[in-house]
C-alpha cells in the first residue's frame, strides 16, 4: 500500500471499493460535476461557533455522508449548503452560483426547485394527508393539483407506502412517515437531497429500509444526497464521507 499520507488525505476516498468501480456499481460518467462547493465556512450562533472552517464538495449523483459527534456542526454545515443559514464568512456555490450572494427569494426558489429535504421528524404538515404532503412541493412549483397528486402517488408507491396516501401523518408509523418524507423530498426530481439524521427516530430495521429506499431512489433519479448522521450503519449507505469535528471538516478532499 502506497501513497497513504500520515495526514489522512485518503480518508475521504470511499470509491476504493474492490475493483475500483464506483461504489454504487454503476457509472455516472466522469469526471462528476461539482454541484455544491463550500469553502472555509464560519458560522457562530451568539458566542458559540458552530462552524470554524468547514469545506467540502458535493458531486453530482453521489451520496456523501457528513459524520461527526453531536454538536460538531454537521447540521449547521448542511443548513449552510442548502442556503437555509447564511455563513458568517466563506462561500457556498451551487453549480457556480454563489448562494451567499442570493436574496431570500432566490434561495427559496432554489430550495424549492433544486433541493429536497428529509429531516429527523416533524416535517410533514399534520393536517394534510400523506398524498397531499408529497404533492405539496410540486404544487408550490405550480404543477396542477391532479398532476401533482398523480406523481405523488407514484412516489409513495415507489417508497412502498402507497397504502397510507389518504392518511394523515399522525396516523402512520414513524418509518412510514419518514418514507413519505423521502417521497416528498424526491418528488420534484431535485439535484440534491439533504437528509439530516433521517433515521434518527427509527429503529435499525425501519431505518435501514428508509436508507435503502432513499439512496436507491436518489441513484435512480441521479440526485446527489448529503446525508448528515452520527450512525455508521447509516453512513454505510454513502459513497464517501466527510467528518466534522469542532466545526471543522476533518477530511480533505482526495487529491485531484
Amino acid at each position: 500500500m502506497t501513497g497513504i499520507h500520515a495526514d489522512g488525505g485518503a480518508a475521504a476516498t470511499g470509491r476504493r471499493a474492490d475493483g475500483g468501480a464506483p461504489a454504487d456499481g454503476h457509472d455516472r460518467g466522469s469526471p462528476a460535476e461539482e454541484l455544491l462547493v463550500a469553502e472555509e465556512l464560519h458560522r457562530a450562533f451568539g458566542p458559540t461557533p458552530a462552524l470554524a472552517g468547514a469545506s467540502l464538495t458535493v458531486r453530482a449523483g453521489e451520496v456523501l455522508a457528513v459524520l461527526g459527534p453531536s454538536g460538531s456542526g454537521k447540521s449547521t454545515l448542511l443548513h449552510c449548503l442548502a442556503g437555509i443559514v447564511r455563513p458568517d464568512s466563506g462561500r457556498v456555490t451551487y453549480r457556480g452560483a454563489d448562494l451567499t450572494a442570493m436574496s431570500d427569494r432566490e434561495l427559496s426558489a432554489l430550495r424549492r426547485g433544486q433541493f429536497g429535504f428529509v429531516f429527523q421528524f416533524g416535517q410533514l404538515v399534520p393536517e394534510l394527508t400523506c398524498l397531499e404532503n408529497v404533492a405539496l412541493p410540486l404544487r408550490l412549483e405550480r404543477v396542477g393539483r391532479r398532476e401533482a397528486e398523480r406523481r405523488a402517488a407514484e412516489w409513495l408507491g415507489r417508497l412502498e407506502v402507497g397504502d397510507v396516501a389518504g392518511k394523515r401523518p399522525g396516523e402512520v408509523s414513524g418509518g412510514q412517515g419518514q418514507r413519505v418524507a423521502v417521497a416528498r423530498a424526491l418528488v420534484t426530481a431535485p439535484r440534491v437531497v439533504f437528509a439530516d439524521e433521517p433515521t434518527g427516530a427509527l429503529d435499525s430495521l425501519h431505518g435501514e429500509r428508509v436508507m435503502r429506499l432513499l439512496t436507491g431512489a436518489a441513484r435512480d433519479t441521479g440526485a446527489a444526497v448529503v446525508l448528515v448522521t452520527h450512525e455508521a450503519r447509516v453512513a454505510a449507505y454513502s459513497d464517501r464521507e466527510v467528518v466534522v469535528r469542532d466545526g471543522r471538516t476533518r477530511s480533505l478532499e482526495p487529491a485531484a
Partner: peptide
C-alpha cells in the same frame, strides 16, 4: 487523530461492502 480517521474510512469501506 489521522490514524483514527484512516481507520474509520477503512471500516466504512468494509461496511459499505
Amino acid at each position: 487523530a489521522d490514524l483514527l480517521d484512516t481507520q474509520r474510512a477503512e471500516h466504512l469501506r468494509l461496511m459499505r461492502e
